[in-house]
């Protein structure tokens, strides 16, 4: 008799823990062919708020960690992901080879961003030659808590929007791909075993249209990445809501996730701090 497999319960990832939605709701996730895969948690407004609280709580520690430390942790995430290549390829489905290529690209993307942790300031900061006896130094600092609506590409797209936000010291709340949320929760297992402090990345599964407006209007969210919002009306209302506390907003874009990512996704959620100090005996 063949063995009956033990299935995984897909829950949310908030503050380093894996709770079910407080609403007790779930929604069925199916494969591309329409086969049932799992019931994912259908996160609620309250879950989104809890996630923001967790992200805010993690911000001081994460933004205060040395860039070297953050880089090491992102590289560790890549190492852990490498160890689960086959699992992710299975979960992505489709052709095996194509799926593995997407997983490998996600791993390499993490390695690419890991290296930026202690370099972005060298490119994006400056010693400013002001006309006076002053030392004047500009350095980039993380914006704070960033809400991200992840793109449909369930792993490479997700990694490509999360890594650039956290490598510089931001923390985030992510709304995973609505039709394909399972790799995001499996990625949370990778994050949870990579020395990434709890709360730096929080992952919600559920309805974009239900969660994104609350995150866009949340007064303790500093940045909003709408990359994955497909509905232009939803994107517009989110951006308008974000105006209330002047969140930094990244508008939805179609991106080729296999292309060179550039540094724009990092600099978008960075503030520039300039320090003046007099020079004289």
């Amino acid at each position: 008799m063949s063995r009956l497999s033990v299935r995984k319960t897909y829950k949310l990832y908030i503050g380093g823990a894996f709770p079910r939605s407080e609403s007790g709701r779930s929604y069925p996730v199916t494969s591309a062919k329409g086969d049932f895969l799992a019931n994912a948690s259908l996160a609620s407004r309250k879950d989104a708020r809890d996630a923001v609280v967790a992200a805010r709580k993690a911000f001081a520690g994460w933004s205060g960690a040395t860039p070297y430390n953050r880089g090491q942790i992102l590289y560790r995430v890549a190492e852990m992901l490498e160890g689960r290549r086959a699992q992710f390829a299975d979960e992505l489905g489709g052709g095996k080879r194509a799926a593995l290529e997407r997983v490998d690209a996600a791993i390499d993307r993490l390695v690419w961003y890991a290296g930026w942790s202690d370099k972005i300031a060298a490119l994006h900061g400056a010693a400013n030659p002001v006309a006076g006896p002053y030392f004047n130094l500009s350095t980039p600092e993380p914006t704070g808590v960033v809400a991200i609506v992840a793109p449909a590409d369930p792993l490479l797209g997700l990694v490509s929007v999360v890594a650039p936000v956290i490598v510089t010291g931001n923390t985030c709340v992510v709304v995973a791909s609505e039709p394909a949320p399972l790799p995001a929760i499996t990625l949370a297992e990778v994050l949870a075993t990579s020395d990434l402090p709890g709360g730096v990345v929080n992952i919600l599964t559920g309805r974009q249209a239900e969660l994104a407006p609350w995150l866009s209007a949340h007064m303790d969210v500093n940045g909003l990445d709408l990359t994955g919002v497909a509905d232009p009306d939803l994107a517009l209302s989110c951006e308008q809501a974000a105006a209330e506390n002047l969140k930094r907003v990244a508008r939805p874009v179609e991106e080729d996730w296999s292309a060179d990512p550039g540094i724009g996704r990092m600099t978008r959620f960075l503030e520039t701090k300039t320090v003046w100090h007099p020079i004289g005996v």
Binding site: G71, Q72, D118, K119
Partner: peptide, 8 residues
């Protein structure tokens, strides 16, 4: 670690 990050 640092220069590894510069290579790409």
């Amino acid at each position: 670690f640092y220069y590894a990050g510069w290579a790409d």
